[in-house]
Structure formats: structure tokens, C-alpha cells
Nucleic acid binder design. Sequence first.
DNA 1: ATGACGAGCGTGGCTCGA
Length: 260
Amino acid sequence: MLVATWNINGVKARLDALLAWLDERQPDVVGLQEIKSVDEQLPRAELEKRGWHVETHGQKGFNGVALLSKVAPLSLERRLPGAPGDEQSRFIEAVYALDGGRVRVACLYLPNGNPLGTEKFTYKLDWMARLEAHAKTRLEEELPFVLMGDYNVIPQPEDVREPAAWTNDALYQPESRAAYRRLLHLGLTDAVRAASDAGETYTFWDYQAGSWPKNNGIRIDHVLLSPEAAVRLQGVSIDRHVRGWEKPSDHVPVVVDLRA
DNA sequence: ATGACGAGCGTGGCTCGA
């Protein structure tokens, strides 16, 4: 089965690219981030007439996440536990029956956290602590579990073309990177690193300053796998050609292949 | 040295992102 994550940067502005990529890729489950749409304004009919089940956790103007799937989910949740007052739409997860078994897929849009020294960075770290607690609970379930999305964390120096440009950025702070490592230490596997030793496995290139033609990228979109999912890992693809399309998102899809 | 791009909201120039 193919499970994919993509920060689409506006699902209404990117519908043509989304449909083209879905046709080309035919994934079983897709997590989208930054749909920047309320649930009612998402182009649901365009997707449903092509056979996609659509589950959303939208928000006006920014944020917003969604799960598309070929089969309907068995169960669905729309919030990351731990902060009932948090109104930002950044998390959705579902259980699917695929390949003769159940698999849980969570799609997240982790806070950016900039600028440093503000409540935005605190919110990022608090959100990561909530994510760690939730992941720990989910791992106890011992289902194949895919925890994927836009983490807004550059894990390691090899995940950024120009590390010096990011030293004062929330995406590359020691605290952000340590929180990401704590997720791995729970027993989650970073699928890209497990499946490939390739360099320059970037997933984001800024719109500005010619970042894409210069390949000045970063790796911030990640697919983490529970042990039960990691043993099924066949391969990973970063669909970087999508960044060269007309009116692209600044992120590209990351796709994992898990065997039955 | 700085800004640079893009979406959304909603109609002018903000906020937000990374």
C-alpha cells in the first residue's frame, strides 16, 4: 500500500495539481496539510467523483489538514489530545482496513514556531510534547501506525543545504530537533532515512530567492513508522518533480510503500 | 545588506508561512 503526505499550501489554489498527482500516483491514503480552507469550501465533489473519501479538519484562512483515502475509514479523530482550548486545526487521524489488516494513519501540521523568543516557539514545543505523549499511547496499541506530515523540523545537518542560514530559525533549534529525536526514541522509524542513503532528500524549497533552481532545500516533511509498520517498509519516494509544475506548492509529496 | 514569493481575505494591504 502507498501512504503519502503533502503540504499542499492551499487546496483550492492547488486543485489541478492535486488531481494530477493523485491520478499519477494512486496512493491508498494521503494526508494533506495547510489546506487553508474551511470544511465546507473544500472541493469535495471533485475528489469524491474520482472515488476519494475525504475527511477534513479545516480552518478559515490558514492551517487545516485532511485525509484522502480509497476506502472509508473505520474510525476518525480530529484533535491532538492535551490542550482542549487549542483551536488550530493541525491534526487528523484515522484507522483503515487495508491489505487485509488495520492500519492507523495520522496527519499532522506541526507549528512553525518562528520567531524565536515568542509564544509561537513555546506553542511549537508544547505541541511537540503533546505529540510525544500521544505517539506513546498509540504505540501501545501495537497496530501498524504511520505518523506523518509537515513537522517543521530539520532533523540533522544532512537535511539542509545551507545549515548556517537556519541557525536562528525555529525549524533548526536544538530544542526542536531534540523533541523530534524523542519521537524516534519512542520506537518510531524515520522512513526516508531507513529506506535511502541518498543525499539532498529535501521536501521543501522556498518560493523566494531562487531556492528551487538552486536546490536550496530542507527536509521537514516526515513519515514516522511504528515497529509494526516499519517491518513492512518497501521503499520511499520524494516526488520532487511536482515542485517544477506550474503554480506549485513549496512542499512536495513524500510517499511510503508498505507491503501487505 | 536587504528583499525576494505566495495564499487567503476581501478589495488594500494586511497576516501567515519557512
